[in-house]
Design a protein around this nucleic acid. Structure first.
Lengths: 240, 240
DNA sequence: ATCTCTGTTTGATCTAGATCAAACCATACC
DNA sequence: GGTATGGTTTGATCTAGATCAAACAGAGAT
């Protein structure tokens, strides 16, 4: 499943920045036309399939990327195999860690995804030359910090039922298409991944999902597709 | 116990930047002599006692501060009273959240402490004028993010015994004075606070502490003072 | 259509940690 | 000295969630 780091640079298609949805995102939105042209020449757009490891825990990575489509999970693993997902990133988030050489976590495509890969040293140079880029990356780091701390509350103090509701709520509010009250989306995570995100077992995840289903808070189609008839109802399950 | 925000500005003693231990810290280390003089004129040094709330969850705060002495805990509280400590800050850390008006967490002195209080708008201006300051704050945000994610692993996937060992290890490695192998320190947190940091109950915390004591990994004097004869031994309890 | 194979649900049982309750122990105050 | 007081430990019991085990369901492959 893994993709060697070099391979990520060797394959892929050229980038069309002008028509890119991330043109005004965290990174590219901070760049001048000249910078963007330079970045364009050295970047590649790549499809990665679900399960593909983009950055490996404990390794040095020589690139950053933008998520163009799909969901990426950030994982920390212990030697004995216990695993914790510590964050999810959605398009058009930026993935990578300025300043630090070695990653303390792995980033892995949770769904089939598309990423736009940048050489690390090029971006590092642009950060040092572009205060606005620095500001935006700083701002994203603070948002991720808030999200991490919010999830610490979920991990430490919420019950199994509240945890699953929190996860569904998180995904529902980050998935794209929503009608007025009702919301539908595909879960980007398997039951095992949900368990690793919530710090519990797949059996408990499954039981809590059927509890939510039987109480009418959600409908489940084909294991992965979730319909939330009333988001307020779901929100109430969290006791935020 | 709480200190009104305005009060934090009204009382306190002038700052002596030249001889200050935080002179080369995250914030002040990035400033020119001129900036430092200006900051000096508008800052105050204050003692705060254990339990004093420095920033309240859900409120706007009009200042930032440096911790000069003591330990500050960052807490998130649910309406029903459940609480989770999401981080500890040690001297000479910076406390505050640039860019964001309303705090999603509270900051409270865990021990008697001393802080150096800066007006928010002054620092915000200096951030926009000083790329080096921005870089350092960005760097600190990334360090806090790493720490938060590391703790997510502890909350989600470690056992009660491993959790307590993790906490002792965290504090031991942040407390100042250490000899070659053996380490001694005062716990900055009560059993109740430890429980809120580890997502468990005080009884379980207490039981795990006595387990560690009886197995010789730690010695406990006067509830708060901890001696770790062999840090490697403690580290082994974590199964990092 | 049948047979994997992998992910999911459901059921039965067990246990780590929570809860309930009491004893303990410093410190401060009368 | 006694005696409140707040934090801490220890003990007895309970339970939410883990573990063990089996059935189930969809997607490919033959």
């Amino acid at each position: 499943m893994d993709v060697a780091r070099s391979e990520l640079f060797e394959t892929g298609t050229p980038v069309a920045c002008a028509s890119c949805q991330a043109r005004h995102g965290v990174v590219c939105g901070a760049l001048s036309n000249g910078q963007l042209r330079e970045l364009n020449r050295h970047s590649l757009r790549r499809k990665v399939e679900a399960g593909c490891e983009i950055i490996a825990q404990g390794s040095e990575s020589s690139f950053y990327s933008n998520i163009m489509r799909g969901v990426v999970k950030l994982c920390k693993m212990m030697q004995d195999g216990r695993q914790q997902i510590v964050g999810l990133q959605f398009a058009p988030d930026f993935v990578g860690r300025p300043f630090v050489r070695e990653s303390t976590l792995s980033a892995e495509a949770a769904t089939d995804a598309e990423i736009c890969v940048f050489p690390r040293n090029l971006i590092d140079r642009m950060i040092s030359e572009t205060p606005e880029l620095q500001r935006r990356l700083h701002d994203q780091a603070l948002k991720e910090l808030d999200a991490a701390r919010e999830w610490m509350l979920t991990l430490g103090r919420r019950t199994a039922g509240e945890k699953v509701a929190s996860l569904l709520y998180l995904i529902a509010t980050h998935a794209e298409p929503q009608t007025a009250t009702s919301t539908a989306f595909d879960l980007p995570l398997s039951r095992a991944e949900i368990a690793d995100f919530l710090g519990m077992t797949i059996e408990t995840v499954s039981r809590q999902m059927t509890r939510l289903r039987k109480s009418g808070v959600i409908r489940i189609e084909n294991f992965r597709h979730i319909i939330v008839p009333d988001m307020d109802e779901l929100e109430r399950m969290i006791s935020a």
